[in-house]
Design a protein around this nucleic acid. Sequence first.
DNA 1: TGTACATCAGTGAACGCGCGTTCACTGATGTAC
DNA 2: TGTACATCAGTGAACGCGCGTTCACTGATGTAC
Lengths: 214, 214
Amino acid sequence: MTAVGNNKPKRETYRHGDLRNALVEAGLELARQGGPTAVVLRAATRQAGVAPNAAYRHFTDRNALLHAVSQAAMAHLARTMEAEQTTLPPTTDAAAAARARFRAVGTGYLRFAQEEPGLFRTAFHVPGDMTHAAADTAAGTTGKTPFELLGTALDGLVEAGLLPEDRRPGAEFLAWSAVHGLACLLIDGPLRGLHPTRVHDAGQHVIDMIERGI
Amino acid sequence: MTAVGNNKPKRETYRHGDLRNALVEAGLELARQGGPTAVVLRAATRQAGVAPNAAYRHFTDRNALLHAVSQAAMAHLARTMEAEQTTLPPTTDAAAAARARFRAVGTGYLRFAQEEPGLFRTAFHVPGDMTHAAADTAAGTTGKTPFELLGTALDGLVEAGLLPEDRRPGAEFLAWSAVHGLACLLIDGPLRGLHPTRVHDAGQHVIDMIERGI
DNA sequence: TGTACATCAGTGAACGCGCGTTCACTGATGTAC
DNA sequence: TGTACATCAGTGAACGCGCGTTCACTGATGTAC
């Protein structure tokens, strides 16, 4: 970096090579810090070290860029949820395992919301992609959407006999609402700034409620 | 209106008389249509028929205006919730009444989110005011915040013996999370555009879950 | 293997826009005498 | 009751800003002969 405020990472090649990806990555960084409205086309190109209009080779619109960033954020969320499931200690008790996997879905969701509020808000800012389209599948990732992970976990509860089959339909939306609501209250709402320990407790209590009430 | 696009409502007096209120009202209208980001200072003054800088007599900032609008939106939410409780048929069964009042809190909350998504989002966009400060108390309104209404309803459940006293602490956040989450999913999320009947059903199911799981 | 050429990812300059905010002002209102 | 004056809510013009987007362009790359 030669001059203050000059963040242009100079390329050696005239062509960038992977600009589309670089722009999405830059957009993710912007979203991470300021949520969806911070995903500004000119800022993304600046961060990628490219002229503003270069973005139009890869996105029709500022909106198309935002949409791609939103999808990538959703993929991040899914990856965090899967990571949470991966940390579970192995057990021979099938029912306990099913329960633990179910709870990990919620815990991972909440952890992501807490650790990456900007990305979380960005993931949900753009028309419903949670239930569809997993976007890029990173190494070691199933490619499932958050919604699919939740569905699988619920199926596991039914198989383990922890959830009556007749309660299964629509259960996604009950569980999802409760966890998503807590996430929103923690991020944007009156629960912001709660002590991390209390945040974790609140999450567990909400998941308890879901298990009881589902 | 003499010219197309000229929305300036001309005053007779030089002084406006009630500009602060007019700006908040204009802000509410903007928020109603486009959420918090649509609360634009110049647009509000335009709608009030006043020069842009006139706003600075009543608000230090664009942010101060947004904050006032957000509080007013929150007051609207509270009013809708109270209205929902008012429509309940009278009953002599104290337990049934307590339950109905509790459910009306959630139903009113969801109804407002559905009918006024822009105001709903605006109410929650700005740092936590739901638990405090009821803002302007309209005629026939208690002045309670949404949070207080929920608390009162929960106290009613305890008094009626429908909720064990030891489950009461923290119950606000469980109920609130679930209902708030559904509201968010219906407005911004993948449940947007759900058929109104299904929306109502989903709301009732979530409230069922809360009653069971609280 | 060497050359001509088409492709198309990036450049550089410019546009119009609406925004928030500041400035020095004006003139209606309420009050003191 | 009539007049002088202070107050302060609104005016009008201007500012600098960063944005998204368009234009005609340039030059590295890959391919056909």
